[in-house]
Design a protein around this nucleic acid. Structure first.
Length: 570
RNA sequence: GCCGGUAUAGCUCAGUUGGAAGAGCAACUGAUUCGUAAUCAGUAGGUCAUCAGUUCAAAUCUGAUUAUCGGCUCCA
């Protein structure tokens, strides 16, 4: 059984050999196989490679594969390797040799192409059955922006044409589902208006309905789970961010201060300081704990223009944020509640597969070590109690405490990080938070930051891609469209519309002077979950005919049956 | 921010060697009153992203700016 890693790795050597043949002056940098089933090679080459060059390179690669050249492994000393790459004029390889501690170096050879490589490889190039070059990109040597920009050619290899085609279909499917395309087709949001600015989102009526639907759902759930609401401003004095430590540790993600009345203010990158001050607004007793403050808080973070991506990565976004203030004894129970809450909410949106990442103390951190260890342990045990598989990201925590991130898996098997739970014993310290314990002594509470969906914008992006815009009934901006056969049916249609609106369903009457077929087509294109057809027959029997987005005709229903059916979809 | 693409009507896109700005859909107007994915006809819609430059002549060539897309974590 040949692993994908070995296959991709070998294909990458074929790519390098092809490039050297076509561009003899090219200097090869590095070319590992990627995590996502593929390979790339970074090369330093004078002339820019364009997409049209890829087919030539592919052609040369096919030649090499057709010749079925064996991969020969051989050992040399570092000095010998250095001489070989000197002769081949491969400076980057010589640099890589410097980082390798071993005295003996493994090289691989195909024909007259030699590369520095640990292997393993396929026996020969002929074993590569299917591959494709996908992309060209620029990137820095060793990801260091002070060093030379190289050209990266990336591609993918498989053991069979079928697998390759499946993969290409998947790439196609991902492109088709791009939330930015769906968003503009369905008039959901503006994200690229040059007068508003990059990474800033304006919700159009239908998009606003989706967002408000989610917000209403979240509010209801939070109140049922013992949270209290906070509403905080979008800017605050720089001093606040100095106390919280953000100005010191997070300033590269914050927008520059603005001057108001000789004081410096900052657009908020987080909601927590406001919730902390809300906690501090009066003396607290142990009887009040845990205190759970929630807010759909819009935050602004500076992101490099190059990393902005529709709703998925924006400069202004709204978090379903909450901060829980509790005693150390209450932490475990609270963590359990939060994980249950997260799973419940994500399942409501149709996500059932998850992964968890536990991120531990980073190099840049505040607080004492003992608290860090205790907090990391609490988080780990909370995960274990829920039996979800998890991985540990050493050093990936926030500067003020460790965290767990929950990723959901979508139907194309992509994972998205949404939920996050962070323990914080630093801010209570910084802001001098207290409560009176049962023995009359002042004690310091622990703080838990958590978000369920993360950013509403991003989550809606994920939903749109998951459902290709055809959102479930309960969250669809327009749930029901009423289609009349002829003008004389409009009056009855309006009556049905009023009945539905009174029950809080979102519905519209199709206004076009079109045939039924055209109205159905429009509704299908607009991804409306339910259509009600009204003609002579329906009016006569005081019924409507229900047609679903999937094309099912559910037949005639009276008012009561219609409402019951709609209710069942909520 | 950096590297490389891209920018033409609301949307999807044509536009040849530099020589009069195009189509389909959407919109609007009129006719049609129709039973489960497109009725017909007509009208209107543009500083070819912006600003400079080359040229007798620029959507087309050059430069800058803006926006946008793909990358910039994986260590032989």
């Amino acid at each position: 059984m040949i692993s994908n890693d070995v296959l991709n790795h070998s294909c990458e050597h074929v790519l390098a050999a092809a490039i050297i043949k076509l561009f003899p002056s090219a200097k090869l940098a590095m070319g590992p196989q990627t995590h996502a089933n593929g390979f790339y090679y970074d090369i330093d080459i004078e002339e820019p490679i364009t997409l049209s060059d890829l087919s030539n390179i592919e052609l040369e690669m096919r030649n090499i594969i057709a010749k079925d050249i064996p991969f020969e492994k051989f050992n040399v000393t570092k000095e010998e390797a250095c001489k070989i790459f000197e002769k081949l004029n491969q400076d980057y390889k010589k640099e890589i040799l410097d980082w390798i501690p071993d005295k003996n170096i493994i090289l691989y050879r195909n024909d007259n192409f030699i590369d520095l490589c640990r292997g393993p490889h396929l026996p020969s190039t002929g074993a590569i059955r299917a591959f494709k070059l996908l992309n060209i990109a620029g990137c820095y040597w060793r990801a260091d922006k002070n060093r030379k920009v190289l050209q990266r050619i990336s591609g993918i290899a498989f053991l069979s044409e079928d697998e390759l085609n499946l993969h290409l279909l998947r790439i196609d499917e991902i492109k088709k589902r791009d939330h930015r395309k769906i968003g503009s087709k369905l008039n959901l949001f503006l994200v690229s208006n040059p007068l508003i600015g990059p990474g800033l989102i304006t919700w159009l009526p239908n998009g606003s309905l989706i967002r408000m639907g989610i917000e209403n759902f979240l509010r209801k759930e939070h109140f049922e789970n013992g949270y209290d609401a906070i509403i905080s401003p979008h800017i605050a004095k720089l001093d606040l961010w100095k106390i919280s430590g953000h100005w010191e540790f997070y300033c590269e993600n914050m927008f520059s201060p603005m001057k108001i009345d000789d004081q410096e203010y900052i657009l908020k990158p987080m909601n927590c300081p406001f919730h902390i001050l809300a906690y501090k607004s009066k003396p607290r007793s142990y009887r009040e704990l845990p205190i759970r403050f929630c807010e759909l808080g819009t935050v602004y973070r500076y992101e490099l223009t190059g990393v902005l991506h529709g709703l998925m990565r924006a400069r202004g976004f709204t978090q379903d944020d909450a901060h829980i203030f509790c005693t150390w004894d209450q932490v475990d129970q609270e963590l359990d509640n939060i994980i249950n809450f997260i799973l419940k909410v994500l399942k409501k949106f149709g996500f059932f597969k998850f992964e968890i990442n536990l991120s531990t103390m980073p190099k840049k951190y505040v607080g004492n070590l003992e608290h860090w260890k205790r907090a990391e342990k609490s988080l780990e045990q909370a995960i274990l109690r829920h039996g979800i598989t998890y991985t540990i990201d050493t050093g990936g925590g926030a500067f003020y405490g460790p965290k767990i991130d929950l990723k959901l898996k979508d139907s194309l098997d992509r994972s998205w990080q949404c939920s996050t739970v962070q323990l914080d014993f630093n801010n209570p310290e910084r802001f001098d938070l207290n409560f009176m314990n049962s023995t009359g002594l002042s004690e310091r509470p622990v703080m838990i930051h958590r978000a369920l969906l993360g950013s509403l914008e991003r989550f809606i992006g994920i939903l749109l891609e998951e459902y290709t815009g055809a959102l479930p009934f309960w969250i669809a901006p327009e749930q029901i469209r009423i289609l009349t056969i002829a003008d004389r049916h409009t009056e009855y249609a309006k009556k049905i519309e009023q009945i539905l609106i009174k029950k809080n369903f979102r519905t519209k009457i199709s206004k076009e002077n079109d045939k039924l077929g055209a109205k159905i087509r429009d509704a299908q294109m607009d991804k409306i979950p339910l259509m009600l057809v009204i003609g002579d027959k329906e009016i006569e029997q005081e019924n409507v005919t229900i047609r679903t987005r999937k094309g099912e005709n559910l037949g005639l229903k009276n008012e009561h049956e219609l409402l019951a059916y709609c209710e069942s979809l909520m």
